[in-house]
Amino acid sequence: MSQDTSITDSLDESIVEFVTVRIANQLFGLPIHDVEDVFVPQNITSVPMSSHEVAGVLNLRGRIVTAINMRERLQLEPRAKGEGSMAVGIEYSGESYGLVIDTVGEVLRLKEDGKEPNPSNLKPNWTSVSAGVYQLDGELMVVLDVARVLQIGDKHEQLAGQPMGIAV
């Protein structure tokens, strides 16, 4: 169980593939079976009265996708002007969502049991969406629990993280 959990060619079932994404320099991993596609978010229509995490809705090849601003969701600083963004398309309980992130990286094959539980001092607003942490070479990757990321509007979740997102 070394830090070096990179590619082993074993067909072991305990191997999990992750799509890695970067949000405000932090590396995150999304289980590959949760990810439908990756696209550049364009032409987003904002939805008035929606939670601040909701970036809006957009048309992705004829489907209406609800875009989630992951920086807002994770209560990070807003992206600087001119910085591009990407989105990861997710199909969750029959509905299409797009997680708007900064950049998309490679796909990693990691051993299931290489994952460590969340450090106990991780802020509650992050523990609520994190399914654990991988120790990679040189950095840590937080595994995102897609179902919980999409639990927006849930009052308990909201309480955990004070609405500092609207800091403008």
Binding site: P41, A55, A67
Partner: peptide, 12 residues
């Protein structure tokens, strides 16, 4: 305001 803040949604 929200749109500016999030900047992913430059909006119309």
């Amino acid at each position: 305001v929200k749109g500016d803040a999030s900047d992913v949604a430059p909006h119309e």
